[in-house]
Write a protein that binds this DNA or RNA. Structure first.
Lengths: 242, 242
DNA sequence: CGGTGAATTGATGTCAGTCAAGGAGGGTGG
DNA sequence: CCACCCTCCTTGACTGACATCAATTCACCG
């Protein structure tokens, strides 16, 4: 039994814009099922032409690319509400892979009906573009981090953005949140080695700014952390939910 | 006197998908004018809510972000056919700035009519999303470069991508193209220092792989360059032109 | 012809990568 | 029940790629 969109647990979160009844009904028709996957399951593959698109309903994951040399670059973390497979839906090929880090539940949409969404409900098409523009915005910021910030700034930036996204989703209560990733994931996201990431996390812990262990992220001093990260405190703007 | 879309010099290039007559007519209505700017002119500012959107018609530029510390991260180079201001059109705020590197001519569109495009011509809305997805794809690759490749690989990657884009636009003839940027622009794009970028370019020159001086980029051995860059040779796929 | 911006090169310093080893926890099978 | 293994985290020692500093050259321009 799948969750009807009407009772989707994401709808009422701060992170997302509210739905009209008509939109709700339309999305319900667009949705073709639900997928549950275990931790570690590949969801989308770079270069593949996936027949299905997803919205993350529960659980967390990573988007990443592999180099020919076998190194991994994490592009972004996947949180509930994230839309997966846009590139396969629009162009014919994913630019990155997606993998579940925890067990996940995904809303499933059919790629064949994706175009209908633009044709029949242009507002939703606009929303899709919104999401793509948001992603572009975020990747630009990530680029600044990899290109210009040192390790301490980069790790601080990542933790701040994670906590802010968590807050908008009700996962972060101002002090702590569940954060079930490995240090290697963070290292691969920031282009740092595992060892140096570990040592940088220690610095933040010693300064009582942030402590992350056993899958739990605690923020000790958000103000100072934001300062080191070079970003403004405050939640991200509301975004559409597909 | 502005160029009518029908006689747009970009239309016939390999880089772009062909237009139907109806699309052409629609775009013509969407276009409100043309803007000519000198080299060095700021076109869009990060954080601003620009009232106008642009398509680059002639000339080159850079998209970039500045850190609070004043460092610059170049997000991407602007070539003819690039659409500028998507983020301002969709969300209300640009995530980066855009500046003209050479003199440029820009098609001007009105932000207020942007939504009409989705409503009245969903195919074009779809195309906009296509562009956003392409950009996301490219930024992901850039992330891999900054995060995982060393200086030689990064510079090689950048030169390959530049030549490939140039080729699709008829600017690169298989051997060379005009490339009127400064070494500092490339350095800021790759997160390298100017000095190290210079020394890396020298290495490529000594190995007869690529030489760039006096605004002219010559590719000596595209095969080997692609190998160092870790990418496949070959042109980018056709994309929509807005 | 002084002044400015860009490219170039050498000398020196440092941040982060690599190598190596050890510890803690969890699962599995003898 | 305990020995073994595997994954992840942690820490120290050493190395190296790239940053920084500094000086020179050249082209262009008012």
């Amino acid at each position: 039994m799948t969750t009807p969109c009407e009772r989707c647990p994401l709808r009422k979160l701060d992170a997302f814009r509210s739905f009209s009844g008509a939109e709700l009904e339309f999305m319900q028709r667009f949705k073709v099922g639900e997928l549950k996957v275990d931790a570690g399951t590949p969801i989308l593959m770079e270069g593949s032409n996936a027949p299905q698109l997803y919205t993350a309903l529960r659980g967390m994951g990573v988007r990443y690319k592999l180099t020919e040399a076998g190194e991994r670059q994490v592009i972004n973390l996947v949180f509930p509400g994230d839309f997966l497979g846009l590139q396969a839906g629009i162009m014919r090929e994913m630019g990155h892979s997606v993998e579940a880090t925890t067990a996940m539940t995904l809303c499933v949409f059919d790629r064949k009906t994706f175009w209908n969404l633009f044709r029949d409900q242009p507002e939703r098409g606009f929303d899709i573009t919104w999401l793509a523009a948001m992603e572009e915005h975020f990747l630009g910021e990530t680029l600044v981090t990899l290109g210009q910030r040192d390790a301490l700034g980069a790790v601080a930036w990542a933790l701040v953005r994670i906590a802010q996204r968590g807050q908008a989703l009700g996962l972060f209560d101002g002090r702590q949140m569940e954060f079930p990733f490995r240090q290697q994931d963070l290292a691969d996201a920031l282009g740092l080695s595992l060892v140096h990431t570990n040592k940088t996390l220690r610095k933040l812990r010693e300064r009582q700014l942030a402590a992350w262990s056993d899958g739990l992220l605690r923020i000790g001093d958000m103000e100072k952390l934001c300062e080191i990260a070079g970003v403004e405190p405050g939640p991200p703007p509301q975004r559409p939910l597909i």
